[in-house]
């Protein structure tokens, strides 16, 4: 059983997801709040995975929300109604482990949450598309093979078909996609000052030796 929290400013969607997840026997919804502040103010241990709406009405930035939730000990799956590519890229660079539009089936959502809870990345065609055509200033250098896999996966192919077209194994294809995420997350963690560096060491758990 995986514990899940939801941050979404639309009450109807919160109620909707609550009743929806009641039908998923592998997930347990422990909290549903309109803001990250409200969620973090709750007592008790953080949920394993937080479903975070990309755009919240309290004007908070998605990347800040992701960092705070990660710091609190949860993994983050970003969801949104509209695939706003720039925001998606920043949210994942800030540490989210996947992205889905809200129109996916319960099965897809469950699968994504399980993947993330297990330490993996929930890739989606929408996320791959956002990476593939990202023109932002923080875009990392992608290897030709990474780009090839990314473009095919972004077009909607399954990982298996993507791997077949590239002549590689499914695991290797997945590894390329994970590499892209790592590159973005490396680029998303600037190490400009000593304070930042110290914080990063702490984040990485390297300071706890």
């Amino acid at each position: 059983m995986i514990t899940v929290s939801l941050v979404d400013d639309d009450r109807m969607l919160r109620e909707g997801l609550r009743s929806w997840l009641a039908g998923a026997d592998r997930l347990r919804l422990v909290a549903a709040e309109p803001t990250v502040d409200a969620l973090l103010a709750l007592p008790g241990p953080p949920a394993e995975v937080v479903l975070l709406d990309l755009v919240l009405r309290d004007d908070s930035r998605a990347e800040d929300n992701v960092r705070r939730l990660r710091a609190a000990g949860s993994r983050v799956l970003v969801v949104s109604t509209v695939a706003d590519r720039t925001r998606i890229v920043s949210a994942v660079a800030a540490g989210a482990d996947g992205y889905l539009t809200k129109d996916h089936s319960l099965e897809t959502l469950t699968h994504a949450v399980c993947t993330i809870a297990g330490g993996g990345t929930a890739h989606s065609a929408e996320l791959a598309f956002a990476w593939a055509y990202d023109a932002g200033p923080c875009r990392p250098q992608l290897a030709p093979r990474e780009l090839e896999v990314l473009l095919d996966y972004a077009s909607g192919l399954t990982l298996k078909a993507t791997a077949r077209r590239a002549g590689i194994s499914v695991n290797t294809a997945k590894w390329y996609l994970d590499r892209v995420k790592e590159k973005y997350q490396e680029a998303g963690r600037p190490t400009y000052t000593k304070i930042d560096l110290a914080r990063r060491v702490e984040e990485d758990g390297l300071g706890r030796v």
């Binding site: 077009s155 399954t158 298996k160 078909a161 077949r164 077209r165």
Partner: peptide, 10 residues
């Protein structure tokens, strides 16, 4: 057109 059994069509 690219396809394989069980892997969809592109």
């Amino acid at each position: 057109v690219d396809s394989a059994p069980g892997e969809g069509t592109r």
